[in-house]
């Protein structure tokens, strides 16, 4: 009988220990100790907010205004705008302002995944047949130039999306220079 009792005792202790160690759930955050200054009083980036009608802190800039550090882009998002840009738009950077090493880093992050690091249309997603039909930069039918590339980065084109919110103006022109370099390399 004695044995039985101690057995029961031991198992009770065991069960208590197990429940104590296993009650921490990973899907809920832990307790905080005196969380006075933990949570922000100001609005958090991309947080919820009651200040605006749609309930989010991130808003588009008011119509007719241009944010600090941005500039007006005069070409429209249309086939005509594209044609105009192809004809008239020239880079705002001269060759000394373009850092091709930096441009390569940006290109490999944002474009290489589809267009391939060499610009031959064989990025990783194409090789894995997730996205198809990416053109080569030296495609004679497209005959891209700096204006058309900038327009394409800015607004996107058909299945390609816009990269205007990921790259700032200087970075966009740097990437344009790098694409032109890739195109020249392909045409060699």
């Amino acid at each position: 009988m004695n044995h039985m009792k101690s057995l029961i005792k031991i198992s009770v202790i065991f069960v208590v220990l197990i429940t104590m160690t296993s009650c921490r759930k990973d899907t809920a955050p832990n307790y905080q100790f005196m969380p006075n200054m933990y949570a922000p009083i100001s609005y958090e980036t991309y947080g919820e907010s009651t200040a605006f009608a749609n309930g989010v802190e991130a808003q588009l800039s008011a119509e007719g205004t241009i944010s600090r550090g941005h500039s007006l882009f005069e070409y429209e998002n249309s086939i005509e705008g594209y044609a105009l840009a192809k004809e008239n738009l020239k880079s705002s950077l001269d060759s000394t302002q373009v850092n091709l090493d930096n441009a390569k880093i940006l290109y490999d992050i944002y474009c290489g995944i589809c267009h391939g690091v060499k610009g031959d249309g064989q990025g990783n997603l194409v090789k894995r047949e997730k996205i198809l039909g990416i053109p080569r930069y030296d495609d004679p039918a497209r005959a891209i130039n700096e204006g058309s590339i900038y327009h394409t980065i800015y607004y996107g084109k058909n299945a390609m999306g816009s990269y205007a919110n990921l790259l700032n103006e200087k970075e966009r022109w740097e990437v344009v220079s790098y694409v032109l370099k890739l195109k020249a390399d392909l045409e060699k």
Partner: peptide, 14 residues
């Protein structure tokens, strides 16, 4: 930052 949905749609249109 967490990407806004237009970034997702760059690929997920296709």
């Amino acid at each position: 930052g967490i990407p806004s949905l237009n970034v997702c749609m760059n690929c997920h249109k296709s």
